Amino acid sequence: MHVGIIGVGLMGHGIARNVLSRGGFALSFLDHPGNQPTDEIRKLGATPCATPAEVAAVADVVILCVTGSSQVEAIVTGEAGLAGALRPGTIVVDCSTALPDSTLRMGEIVRQAGGDYLDAPMTRTAKHAHEGTLNLLVGGEAAVLDKVRPVLAAFTERVDHVGPLGHGHRLKLLHNYVSVGFMTLLAEAAAQAADAGVDPRVFVDVLAGGGGASAALDRLAPYITAGDRDALPFFVANAQKDIDYYRAMSQASGARTAVADGVSAALAAPVAAGHGEAYVPELVRLFRTGTET
């Protein structure tokens, strides 16, 4: 199979290099200013394309790894988009974090164009993308998933089929609400501890030995204790986007969003102050007393 990828960013770069080096597949990618440097994947044989349509014209599988629904919709339906150039039987694998209702619409458009669609968001970090050990939550038809498993195996450790189309993104939003919510709460607590002069290592040790032990603590501890933000290279603006997607999904179904509203407001302040491209661990600093947000 010839693989196409659109979105060679922090996550997509790792996916691309593993599709080439571990999977041995031919790869074409959208040449875009938002990409990470592509020298490595070009040396491995990746071919740049100028438009999504050019990617679709050569690919049996197209992986989308972009920010959210508006970007996915533009790629699928925009001028020189995927829908107008898909080959019969091409499978679009959407690894972004998107709104389930949008996913269903894009899936129908791709089906009408002769292709198939899977939503397959990721639940790990850029480090895991680089190592080829991502986890995917896949929504869509099981038979379609089976066709692309060899490609997915090149960059994943675990692939879970979680239900029909849209359920991958629904579960990803539930996952990120819990994950980002925990980290936002923890960052605020760590900021308060720092303002009070609590030793950061003692703070982390106390939480780790009790009810605060969690993946959130593991990811923020390097920043809390040593100022190392790179354990979680995830922009605050993207975290806020994911929470707001969760709120939109919940409001559409009539579910309560009281806690999610608070998390969104907490993240909105640093984004509005120009810190949207800070990594999530840096919320510890941004939430401190006297920090302009």
Rank of each mutant, 00 (worst) to 15 (best):
P48L: 08
I75Q: 05
V144M: 06
L136E: 02
V3K: 09
D195Y: 05
D94W: 11
E108S: 11
V61N: 08
S253D: 07
I75W: 05
Q192Y: 03
A208H: 13
E54D: 15
V66G: 07
I75G: 11
G140Q: 03
G262Q: 11
V62P: 05
A126Y: 01
A120D: 02
G132I: 07
L44Q: 12
M106G: 00
H161A: 10
P164R: 13
V93Y: 07
N176M: 10
D119L: 05
D230F: 11
A154P: 03
G89C: 10
H128Y: 12
L232D: 08
M1E: 06
D146W: 05
R219A: 14
D244K: 15
A193D: 01
M11T: 03
T97H: 05
G115D: 09
E108A: 14
E40A: 15
G168Y: 08
H130T: 15
A120K: 09
Y177C: 11
A278G: 00
P200Y: 12
R201C: 07
I91K: 01
Y245S: 04
S264D: 01
P222S: 12
G114Q: 08
I5L: 14
T67A: 14
G78Y: 02
P48W: 09
A231E: 07
M122W: 03
A278D: 09
A154V: 04
E282T: 07
L283W: 03
Y117R: 09
G290L: 04
S28R: 06
T38G: 02
E131M: 11
D228M: 04
V55D: 04
V259T: 13
N35C: 13
P164D: 13
A56D: 06
G168K: 09
G209K: 05
V202R: 14
A216H: 05
A221F: 01
A196G: 10
E79T: 14
T156Q: 05
A83V: 12
S214G: 07
L145V: 07
H167C: 10
E108M: 03
A221Y: 05
V198L: 14
F25E: 03
V204C: 12
L44C: 05
G114M: 08
V204F: 02
A126F: 01
V138R: 04
V3Y: 06
A74L: 10
L220I: 08
G211F: 14
L10M: 08
L267E: 01
